[in-house]
Amino acid sequence: MSKEDILNKLADAVLRGRMADAKAGAQEALDNGVPALEAINEGLVKGMGIVGDNYAAHKMFLPQVLMSAHTMYAGLDILLPAIPKADAAAMKKAIVAVVEGDVHDIGKNIVKTMLTASGFETIDLGKDIPPADICANAEKEGAAVVAISTLMTPTMEGMKAVVEGLKESGYRSSVKVCIGGPPTSPAFAEEIGADHRDINAQDCVNWLKEQKVI
C-alpha cells in the first residue's frame, strides 16, 4: 500500500467513524515507514478537519462527530507514541476542562477533538475541576491555551477564578484563555478577563488561528 493510500485510509476512517480501519491504518503507516506525525497530520487530522467543516455546515451531526473523534483517538493511541521526542516536545499544549460544579462535558469534548485535530497536545482534565487545578496544570504543562466550559450559571464564577488564578501565578500572559458554554457571552469573557468566548469548537480553533497560536 502506498503512503498516499495509507493516509487516505486514515482520513477516510475518521470521516466514516470506522475505528478498526483507523487502528489498522495507523499500524500500516508505522509498518511502512510513514512518519507518525505525517500520518497524524495528513491522515487522521485531515479527516477530522473535513468532519469539523461538515459539522459547522450542518452536514454532519453530533453522533457522527463523536464517532469520528473516537476514531481519531484510536489512531492517535498508536501513532502518538511513535512521534520522535523532539517533534512531540514542539507540539503546543492545550488544557481543556469543565469547571467545578458542573459535569456537562459534551461541548468540552468536541473542543478537545478540534484542538487535537489542529495540532495541539490536548490535556483533558475532565469535568467538575477546581480552578486551582486548572491553573496548576496550565503552568505545569506550559500550556498555550486553556479552554474551559460550563453549562450552568452558578459555576460561571469558576471561570473568573481560573483567570484570576493565572494572574496570581504570573502565568496569565503566557496563555490564551477561551471560555464556552450556553450561559457565557463575549461580555462575560471581557468582564472576567478571558481572551475569547467560543461560539463552538470551530470558533475556538478559528480564533486561535487568527491569534497565530496555531
Binding site: L62, P63, Q64, L66, M67, H70, I106
Partner: peptide, 11 residues
C-alpha cells in the same frame, strides 16, 4: 449521558 447515547445511536 449524551455522549454515550449519541455514539450508541450510531453504533
Amino acid at each position: 449521558s449524551a455522549e454515550r447515547m449519541f455514539m450508541d445511536m450510531f453504533e
